[in-house]
């Protein structure tokens, strides 16, 4: 089966520092793939390159066989990739449903129309997406007063508007209460399974990662050090070391403890 997304030798240097170094991986159809690693491992850099917000120093990103490198985020979106943000990005001055309608107006290429009333456009469609994420009863509320977990749901609804093939989710549960994390992640998993959407996500919460990822990629200092199933990653000594520190320097202490 052809991969949905294929990343080949992706690298990014800032000055002399190699933030991401020759990373290779594929995302298969319907797969939930987690990208993890300690702070500074290059997760965000890697993600920003996939989204088109950062230009890679070298390497390619193929989406359904087409190279995305050099394209703007908005063009990548049109190809069928949706995304959510680590720090939520929603339109604070609009109502919840208008946030979704905005994405639909963009999808239907109506953003330069000056004649119709925007709040009447694609309303029922937008409501369906809100229903999907459980926000239908809050549709008319002001987005700025939404609880954080609900903002994350709203972002998900926005990201689903153009029927994406692939979703990129940057820390989908960051900043949420622990109980909410599980429900939002379960919701995401259910929706993408139903719609057969592939997901690539970064995450800090290991419960979320182990609970939902089909496969895990581990980055450290810009390099991909592991790529495997949940059990493989759990039992990988190199990954343990990356997360707990260690290395030659502390061998003596390790032996002592």
């Amino acid at each position: 089966m052809n991969p949905i997304l294929e990343v080949r030798d992706l690298s990014k240097s800032f000055g002399g520092l190699k933030a991401v170094n020759a990373v290779n991986f594929k995302v298969a159809e319907g797969e939930l793939l987690a990208l993890i690693g300690p702070n500074g491992a290059g997760k965000s850099t890697c993600f920003n390159m996939l989204m088109g917000q950062l230009k890679p120093s070298s390497g390619e990103v193929y989406f359904l066989g087409e190279n995305l490198v050099g394209k703007f985020p908005r063009d990548i979106w049109r190809k069928g990739i949706g995304r959510t943000f680590q720090i939520t990005a929603t339109y604070a001055s609009m109502t919840v449903i208008e946030n979704v309608q905005m994405a639909l107006m963009s999808f239907h290429k109506r953003i330069y129309s000056m004649l119709p009333y925007a709040h009447k456009m694609y309303k029922s469609e937008a409501l369906e997406f809100l229903q999907m994420v459980g926000l239908a009863d809050q549709a008319e509320r002001h987005c700025a007063i939404l609880a954080y977990g609900d903002l994350k749901r709203l972002e998900l609804a926005i990201a689903l508007c153009h029927n994406p093939t692939l979703l990129l989710m940057d820390e989908p549960t960051a900043g949420m209460a622990p109980t909410e994390r599980e429900s939002v992640m379960q919701l995401t998993a259910d929706i993408v399974t139903e719609k057969n959407i592939s997901v690539l996500f970064t995450e800090h919460d290991m419960d979320v990662v182990f609970g939902h990822a089909h496969r895990i990629l581990v980055l450290n200092r810009g390099e991909l050090i592991a790529n495997g199933s949940v059990d493989e990653i759990r039992n990988n000594p190199m990954v343990q070391e990356v997360y707990l520190g260690g290395g030659n320097l502390f061998e003596s202490e390790e032996a002592a403890s």
Binding site: P38, N39, A177, P178, D205, Y243, L244, G245, G246, L249, F250, E253, E254, S257
Partner: peptide, 19 residues
């Protein structure tokens, strides 16, 4: 700290937080 070994080396006590 994230680095347990480093913390162990310098600190007397550990407080672990999560979420």
């Amino acid at each position: 700290e994230q680095n347990l070994h480093f913390a162990r080396l310098v600190a007397d006590r550990a407080i672990i937080i999560e979420g």
